[in-house]
């Protein structure tokens, strides 16, 4: 089953009156259950591609389908609903709500999706246990370490059982040991059948991902499958 189908995607930004092409015709297909790393130097278009895939931004040109649904032309509410139910985001800086507890952060997308109080509480507890934070559920985000915050962000991304998880430099703010724990968690997600796309500069991370898409100047330079881990 195809989760993402991107054809000839372009994205042009206007920067100080100048047109800057961040993506120049990227075509990409991602099947369900794939674990994919998007790599490339700064300014190659990695984050822009991730934002298009997650419906955070719209392509300037080309065709993009998420779970078989054309993204171009969707209204804001439709795109928001797509992000809520089909996509989970993991950000470099975690971006948790600092005033909420770990449990409440995980419950946030569930509440938005209309899940009842009891069910979302159970689901949040289950997800926090999955990422190894069952005992930190009632701690505010500000009381957690960087690695713990990223685990909560992962649990939040998984809350509505999305078809696709997108992670933007998920280990960028973490030390090596903590980053390794996050990568192990990603491996576990992959083994559990989650479709996972990770944007990274981290060669160590990219090296353990089965499929690597290397971007250069807004184009796919290489799209390769690892032969062995």
């Amino acid at each position: 089953m195809t989760v993402v189908l991107g054809q000839d995607l372009t994205k042009v930004y206007s920067l100080n009156g100048r047109q800057v092409a961040a993506l120049r015709g990227v075509s990409l297909t991602i099947a369900a259950g794939e674990y994919l790393a998007i790599t490339g130097p700064s300014g190659s278009g990695k984050s822009t591609l991730l934002q298009l895939l997650g419906g955070l931004d719209s392509p300037t040109g080309g065709r993009l389908e998420l779970m078989g649904r054309r993204v171009e032309g969707l209204s804001d509410d439709e795109l928001t609903d797509l992000r809520l139910r089909q996509v989970g985001f993991i950000f470099q800086r975690f971006h948790l709500m600092s005033v909420l507890t770990a449990r409440e952060n995980v419950e946030l997308p569930l509440a938005e999706a209309g899940v009842g109080r009891r069910e979302r509480s159970e689901r949040a507890a289950e997800l926090l246990a999955y990422v190894g934070l069952a005992d930190r559920a009632d701690h505010r985000a500000t009381q957690l370490s960087g690695g713990e915050m990223q685990r909560v962000a992962i649990a939040r991304a998984l809350a509505n059982r999305p078809a696709l998880i997108l992670a933007d430099e998920p280990t960028g703010e973490l030390d090596a040991a903590t980053g390794a724990q996050i990568l192990e968690l990603f491996d576990r997600l992959h083994q559990d059948g989650v479709t996972l796309v990770v944007v990274t500069h981290d060669e160590h991370l990219a090296a353990r991902v089965p499929r690597r898409v290397h971007l250069l100047d807004g184009r796919i330079d290489r799209d390769e499958l690892a032969t062995a881990r």
């Binding site: 997650g54 955070l56 804001d76 509410d77 928001t80 609903d81 992000r83 809520l84 139910r85 996509v87 989970g88 985001f89 950000f91 971006h95 709500m97 946030l108 997308p109 938005e112 999706a113 939040r156 991304a157 509505n160």
Partner: peptide
């Protein structure tokens, strides 16, 4: 504003 953008990013509607 970043916090609100994150909320929107994870699927919180404008109305909310």
């Amino acid at each position: 504003i970043g916090e609100f953008a994150v909320l929107r990013g994870i699927g919180v509607r404008r109305a909310r």
